[in-house]
């Protein structure tokens, strides 16, 4: 019962957050909605027993990415004028409420049609029981330094490159 409650609240948070990102005209509000959406995704991870992933989602996105996005919006000034010089509402390139509604409707119709056509593929597929709860931290740690050590090292080189690049860009120039 509790799992279902958690799942549906995370699901609602994710979907409504995503919808608000699309519908909002204000960039900062869109950022907040994105935060809600990412928090919902962390909740979905938690319902799937991926505890480490859920916490990583929070640390990386809530702590890092959203704040950086907000900083970027602040430093570039954002755009507050949703009305063009003729006094007509601008439609943002990412869409607004109306385009969102159209998108969802047409998406739903297309998905249902595809499901109807490919029904035979899914008909034998039965959902398996979710395996019991077990901690994922040890497994992730072991896999990162055994099977996936190459990917781990390459991503660390990428991050090091980003760090050095940032330092080079931010360095005061000699005149």
């Amino acid at each position: 019962m509790f799992d279902k409650l958690l799942f549906f609240s995370s699901f609602l948070l994710t979907i409504s957050g995503a919808a608000m990102v699309l519908g909002s005209k204000d960039l900062v509000r869109a950022c907040i909605a994105l935060l809600a959406c990412l928090f919902g995704v962390a909740g979905l991870y938690a319902t799937l027993n991926a505890d480490f992933l859920a916490a990583t989602q929070l640390v990386v996105y809530a702590g890092g990415v959203v704040i950086l996005m907000l900083f970027a919006i602040m430093l570039t000034g954002g755009s507050n004028n949703a009305v063009n010089r003729f006094g007509i509402n601008k439609v943002p390139s990412m869409g607004d409420g109306k385009t969102l509604a159209f998108g969802i409707l047409s998406g739903a119709v297309a998905t249902l049609t595809i499901f109807k056509i490919t029904k035979n593929v899914f008909i034998d597929y039965n959902l398996q029981e979710i395996p019991g709860y077990s901690s994922t931290v040890e497994q992730i740690g072991q896999l990162l330094v055994t099977n996936h050590v190459l990917a781990f090292e390459i991503s660390s080189i990428l991050l090091l490159g980003a760090l050095i690049g940032a330092a080079v860009i931010a360095r005061p120039r000699k005149s």
Binding site: A42, A54, L58
Partner: peptide, 15 residues
């Protein structure tokens, strides 16, 4: 993931 969880939800304060 106790400590990691603390770091995760604690970052909401900064936002």
């Amino acid at each position: 993931i106790g400590v990691f969880y603390v770091l995760g939800v604690g970052s909401f304060v900064g936002v």
